[in-house]
């Protein structure tokens, strides 16, 4: 029957995997899938290797050649990212038409959200810089230079994608001595993106904050933007929607004044004045007449009802 299409997990592990593919409130860290195209060698290969080095351990590397053209048919790419549980992908290929082609992209709901094709004009790999390297798993600072980054939607998306690619993980705290890597992206007038990566040297400045000196450690690349596929405004907005449960709750009835004092407002319900316990004064008691009257009234009511009933019964 039609229900055969719903697969039921057979093992506990399989169930866990299927569960992990469902929407989650707090998503796990975003891993990046590295895929080679039909041909992938030279600059593009070393570029991919360096990117892997920078993103480790949040990477998943596929080494075989893949006959995929992401801009024509992204289905197999979507499948591979889904299977490997990755949110981002980097696809490297080289051809006569598009030499040294790097496609960076990300997914939303198992479909490609945006995807930008960068051509490598000039590349110097990390191994070519004979300098001291940074440690592993260092969160880099990201610098975006140039006024162009904010001018077009495409570049804004590219900037967001680059942040996604390089910033690795969201952290609440950082070791001050551990800030040792900076990646800068400069967008020139002719839309070339210059990527440079430096090691940060903290020097004495005579104050608490150190003076910064930079040493280039590579990789350094000049990218040109080729084809792009960016998500529609609607989809992008939907993808950026944050769960309400994670947003900080607004504190009600608490205000702060200029002196730093906290003012709280307390709401009490309406007081029941008739039930309130007061001093028992003789004058406020019911007189015997009042009591009798009320009792009499009650009795009369019951009597009338009883008579009515008896009449009905007869």
């Amino acid at each position: 029957m039609s229900l055969m299409r719903i697969r039921k997990p057979k093992t506990r592990k399989g169930k866990q995997i299927l569960l992990s593919r469902e929407p989650q409130l707090i998503e796990p860290t975003r891993t990046m899938l590295f895929i080679d195209g039909r041909k992938c060698g030279g600059d593009i290969k070393s570029c991919m290797k360096d990117l892997q080095q920078l993103r480790k351990p949040l990477v998943k590397i596929l080494n075989r050649k893949n006959d995929i053209t992401p801009f024509d048919d992204p289905s197999s790419l979507e499948f591979l990212t889904m299977k490997n549980d990755c949110a981002l992908f980097a696809f490297g290929s080289t051809s006569k038409k598009r030499p040294n082609n790097l496609i960076l992209g990300r997914l939303f709901e198992n479909e490609i959200l945006d995807m930008i094709e960068l051509g490598i004009k000039h590349y110097t790999s990390m191994s070519e810089f004979k300098t001291e390297k940074i440690g592993t798993n260092v969160k880099p600072c990201l610098i975006f230079n140039g006024p162009r980054w904010n001018q077009t939607e495409e570049l804004r998306r590219l900037r967001n994608l680059l942040i996604d690619t390089f910033h690795k993980d969201k952290v609440d705290a950082i070791r001050l001595q551990g800030v040792e890597h900076v990646v800068s992206f400069t967008c020139t007038e002719d839309l070339t993106i210059l990527m440079r990566s430096y090691k940060i040297m903290l020097k004495k400045s005579g104050q608490k904050t150190p003076r910064i000196e930079l040493v280039e450690i590579g990789p350094s690349a000049d990218f040109s933007i080729r084809r792009t596929k960016i998500a529609s405004e609607d989809l992008y907005k939907q993808a950026r929607k944050q769960p309400k449960q994670l947003q900080p709750k607004k504190k009600k009835n608490v205000t702060y004044d200029e002196l730093g004092n906290t003012h709280g407002r307390v709401h009490l319900g309406k007081q029941n004045v008739t039930k309130i316990q007061t001093r028992r004064v003789k004058g406020l008691r019911k007189t015997p007449e009042e009591k009798r009257d009320s009792r009499q009234k009650k009795k009369e009511l019951i009597k009338a009802a009883a008579k009515d009933l008896l009449k009905n019964a007869e």
Binding site: E22, P23, Q24, L25, E27, R30, A87, R106, L107, F108, E109, L113, N160, I163, D164, K170, V171, D172, A173, I174, R175, L176, Q177, Y236, Q238, A239, R240, K241, Q242, P243, K244
Partner: peptide
């Protein structure tokens, strides 16, 4: 604001203002 955890000084980062897209929809 800084804190000392295990012999090293750690700065507490504020919430990032750049919003990155999610991988999947917000669970309903």
């Amino acid at each position: 604001p800084t804190e000392r955890i295990d012999e090293c000084i750690v700065a507490k980062l504020p919430e990032p203002t750049t919003v990155l897209p999610r991988l999947r929809k917000v669970p309903g």
